[in-house]
Design a protein around this nucleic acid. Structure first.
Ligand SMILES: [Zn+2]
Ligand SMILES: [Zn+2]
Ligand SMILES: [Zn+2]
Ligand SMILES: [Zn+2]
Lengths: 123, 123
DNA sequence: CATACTTTGACAACCGTTTTCGTTTTCGTG
DNA sequence: CACGAAAACGAAAACGGTTGTCAAAGTATG
């Protein structure tokens, strides 16, 4: 694990919500780092490949990242205002997705689930 | 409803799966239409605003559209190979999302759910 | 026709992301 | 420590999907 990648990981860990590559780049530069945008992208790609961070696309196509507490499969409920994310797990939705796949004859079924709302602090 | 917008809607209706703006543009030009790419984007935006088509983002950030059978809230199971989509509904997942929101004190809870797999024809 | 209003499409601009490529840093070895 | 190979780095250019611009074409109304 290179120093730069570690810096990106730490910058991301400082937030409880999702953060874009450009946000993280700005954060790191603001605190004096001489890191390049390219390296931020590379670090995030590597971290997401290894399952250490979650990635999702916003409605306008931007990729946002989050350092998750667990590497096992889970989902998030994200505040629309402050972007704070809470990790949620649910056998219910896992079972439901699998059943839906089986019911329609699909194999190798996966799913993406995101829940949005306004958190207690923001409402 | 202008002629162009109707043409886009029909081009989209011809498929059972999700289709990108550029795909639809190519389709229309291939069948002789002189439509411009800008107009395709405008038509899709209008159609999605009015709830007549569903939009989602692929993992690489491209927006894909689908003319849905119903305008009410529902989800899809999409074939990873041929992009055919089947509409699915489930009180289970709706209830689960609402419960998760309530449990963590979130208000105005919404959700996005996509299921992927390989359909019978492609596996 | 004349006028006002809307729709269209070629083209350029935009913006997040990826590629390129020359430089710097890191690391194993003598 | 010195050396060379390999990996990491960052600036700038390229890329690709999407959106903005603006003049031309279409449409309705009187
Ligand atoms: Zn909040
Ligand atoms: Zn799941
Ligand atoms: Zn298929
Ligand atoms: Zn739902």
């Amino acid at each position: 694990m290179s120093t730069r990648r570690e810096a990106v990981r730490q910058a991301l860990s400082g937030y409880s919500g999702f953060r874009s590559a450009q946000d993280l780049y700005a954060d790191l530069r603001a605190e004096g780092s001489k890191i390049g945008l390219t390296t931020v992208y590379r670090a995030l790609q590597a971290l997401s490949d290894s399952g250490e961070v979650d990635v999702l696309r916003t409605d306008d196509g931007e990729a946002v990242y989050r350092a998750c507490d667990t590497e096992s499969h889970h989902h998030h409920i994200v505040c629309r205002v402050c972007a704070t994310a809470v990790e949620i797990e649910g056998p219910t939705v896992e079972r439901w997705a699998a059943e839906m796949g089986a019911k329609h004859g699909f194999t190798g079924v996966t799913h993406t689930v995101e829940v949005f709302g306004t958190c207690t602090g923001c409402s």
